[in-house]
Every structure is written in structure tokens, then in C-alpha cells.
Design a protein around this nucleic acid. Structure first.
Lengths: 220, 220
DNA sequence: ACATCATTCAAGCGTATGATTGAAGCATAG
DNA sequence: CTATGCTTCAATCATACGCTTGAATGATGT
């Protein structure tokens, strides 16, 4: 350490980057962006085994991207602060800005068609106020119950058909999901547009909406 | 829908993070933040072998953090855009904000003494205008020649003693180096303060100064 | 104190990454 | 057109990481 404080410093910075360098951990962070969670819930949502998820969580904690507290028998994890979210955002921005690969993957989700520009959160808020838009929350029911945009309808990709029949054909639809890392809304919009519906995606997901200080309601 | 577009997306984001997860690559990026460089210059500055440095550069290029162009026989690398710098900055901020380890390392550099708050770039610009401050550039002579803050004196850590004797004892000194990743200025300030001089560190280094749009001069 | 449950630790395995060496491209100079 | 020198590719080894399995820890409740 005293031999090379410079390397030691860089090593610390690299530790944070390394924590973000595994898809499994990004997936965990995306979940935590929705709200704090226990280990089992995280393992369940991300499809990781319990022990594996626990190990990833500890790497994230070592990098101080998440913190934990005990609550009875359970250990609850949450993002340390907004900086963690900022870092994830910037990572995504750089990746999308630079990597043609990302473009191709997102295009593949839309069935080859060009996706329309996303709706800004300010726009959606304004349109919500005048009731001229239908908001779809494309997330599992439990996440929807834990918090969603006021007035939003909940639908998973599998449910989508069921919810559609309740909507007028000329409805303007805005879909959102967990956030920029999540592809549910992309897929939902692609499916809706294939049916000729006027659907667009919200820029960002619930965490970003909440971060803007906009209203969020729990189970209706 | 292929096997898992979601994982594929996360994999792309992880690729960018992975590129930042090795001290050697951070070191390269710090060099490139000073300005574009050839492979050999980078290898020399970072202490890496040529082939090794080239491989790291290709990983950075795969993550689109740097781009390259040919210039005669040489291949010149540079940061793709300001986002790369932003990402490095945020990485450092999160690491310093959260990791007690970083604090200890930086404190170790100051010989255990508390370092004073850094001088903001706006403050330095104002004081430079009124000539009430001496600026020290603590970087190798070639980097100094390639660009430095107007009026700055160049000194390496080894040279420091030589330069000192030219300064009045009551001089107010501001030291800077390559930037937040660089520890030269920390060490120089610690050394100067041990001699009873009124030295402080500039917040950020030359890349940040330049990014602010402030004047930079080349070899005097 | 004991049983119980959620979480963490520990060991093993396969794979990927980083560093080194030596050989192969590629653009300019002669 | 060939020669030179910078850069990159290829092969190798050592190390680290991610995932799985099975046991240990730690707090809770009877």
C-alpha cells in the first residue's frame, strides 16, 4: 500500500466499477431501485440462487453501492443513496450512446420497427392532469402494488391482451416499467403498436418518476 | 424474442463497467484525460508493457470509452467524449463518498495531517487575475509543456525543493496535477505544508480546468 | 435453552481475464 | 517495391471470478 498509494486509490475506484460489471448485479440494483428488498425477494426476482444472490449483494456492499439493515430475521438491502442510481444511469447513457449493439438489441425488441421517441415525465404529468392519456404499468403485480403512477393500469406482458379490450381504440397509451434497464415497456409498446394502438414509452421508469418528486400511490 | 434480450442488454452495460474495473485502464484513461496519446506514450506513462497496454486500449475501445485514429505509423487514442470523463468522475465521487478506505489512503498521503479544503477553480481564476497566488503544476515536464494553467510553475515531486527556494515564504500556493485520480498534488501540498508554507490543492486537475473553458497555455 | 428460519460462510469446479512472450499486419520512407 | 518501425494478434500461464453445494452463524420465539 505504501509502495504505491496511487495504485491503491485506483484499485478502490476499480472496485466500484467491478461491482457494476456483472449483469446479475445490475439486475439486483435495478430491483433495489424499485425499493428496498430482502435477500430472498431479490433472489426470486432475479432468478439467482439464494447463496449466489447473497454473495453478489456483499460485493455491492463492499463497493458501498448498497447498504443493509436487519429487520427481525431478515436482512433488508437498499441503495446507499441517489449517487448509486446516478452511476447506473450514466453507465446506461454511455453504453447506449456508444454501443451500436445496444441499439440492435432494443430494435430487436420492437420487432424491427422503429420505436417512437419516449414521452418525457413532465409531458406525462401534464397529460395526466388533463386526463388525456392512459398509463400502463408493465410490471409484476406485487411491484405495482408497492407503488405506481396515479391512475396507471397494471399489466404484465402476458396480461396485456386482457387489459387491451378495456381500452378505446383511439386511446393514447404511455407504458412504463422498472426503468431504463428494464425492457418490459419496450416490448409492451411494440406489441401495442402492432395492434395499431397509439402507444409510446415513458422516458425512465418508476424510480426516475419518484426521483423527480412526482406522486406515487400504493395499492389502489 | 431471443433467449434473453434483457440479459443481453445488461451484458452491454456491464461491458462498460468492466472496462473501468481495472486499475491499469483507469490509469490509461487518466492519461488520456490530459490529451490524446499514442500507444507507446501511454505504455510508458502507465508502466505497462506495450502489448499489454494495447490490449487494455482495445477493451476500452470495445466499450467505446476511447476512440483511435491513425496518424502515419502511430495510432492515436483519445477519450470518445465528455461522457467518458463524467463517468470517471462519478465513479470517483461514489468511491470517495462511500469508501472509508479511500479516506485512509488520502490521509496517508498527507502524512497523517488534515489536508485543507481544495481551492475551487473559480476562486483560483479570480486570484490569478489579481496575481495574489502562485500556481504549481505538479506533473512531468512533457505534460506541462503540452498544456498548463497560465502563469503556473512546473515542478515534479522530486524537483519540489529546487522550486521552493524561488518562492517567498508568505506566498499563497495552489498546486494541481492531472486531476482527481492523481495524487501528485496531494503529496506536494503535504510536503509544502510541512515546510510551513501556505499551500492548498486545486479542486480537480488540468482536464477539469480545461473543461470549464478556462485558458490553457502550451510550452512557455 | 432449544428449535427454527433467513442469511452468510466455505470449498470446489469451470470459465474468463490479465500479463508475458514472440510473431504477424500495416503505413510510411527510401 | 522493399525495408523499417510501430502496433496488434496469438498462444501461454497464473490468477480471479461466478455459480453450486453443503455447513455454520445469528436472531427469534416457544
Amino acid at each position: 500500500m505504501s509502495i504505491s498509494p496511487k495504485i491503491a486509490l485506483l484499485e478502490e475506484y476499480a472496485l466500484v466499477a467491478r461491482a457494476l460489471s456483472a449483469p446479475a448485479r445490475l439486475s439486483i440494483l435495478e430491483q433495489l431501485a424499485q425499493g428496498e428488498r430482502g435477500v430472498e425477494a431479490l433472489a426470486d426476482k432475479t432468478g439467482l440462487t439464494l447463496a449466489n444472490c447473497s454473495q453478489h449483494l456483499q460485493q455491492l456492499r463492499r463497493a458501498a453501492l448498497v447498504t443493509s439493515r436487519r429487520e427481525g430475521k431478515a436482512v433488508i438491502y437498499r441503495l446507499t443513496d441517489a449517487k448509486t442510481l446516478d452511476l447506473m444511469d450514466l453507465l446506461r447513457i454511455v453504453a447506449e450512446r456508444n454501443l451500436a449493439q445496444v441499439e440492435r438489441i432494443l430494435r430487436g425488441l420492437s420487432g424491427g420497427e422503429e420505436a417512437p421517441d419516449p414521452v418525457s415525465r413532465a409531458d406525462l404529468a401534464a397529460r395526466l392532469a388533463e386526463g388525456s392519456v392512459t398509463v400502463l404499468d408493465i410490471r409484476p403485480a406485487d411491484e405495482f402494488a408497492a407503488g405506481h403512477i396515479p391512475g396507471a393500469l397494471n399489466a404484465t406482458l402476458a396480461d396485456l391482451e386482457q387489459v387491451l379490450i378495456m381500452l378505446p381504440n383511439d386511446a393514447e397509451i404511455v407504458a412504463y416499467c422498472r426503468g431504463p434497464y428494464c425492457v418490459y415497456a419496450h416490448q409492451a409498446v411494440a406489441a401495442l403498436r402492432k395492434r395499431g394502438l397509439n402507444a409510446r414509452r415513458l422516458d425512465g421508469g418508476l424510480p426516475e418518476w419518484r426521483k423527480d418528486g412526482r406522486p406515487v400511490v400504493t395499492a389502489p
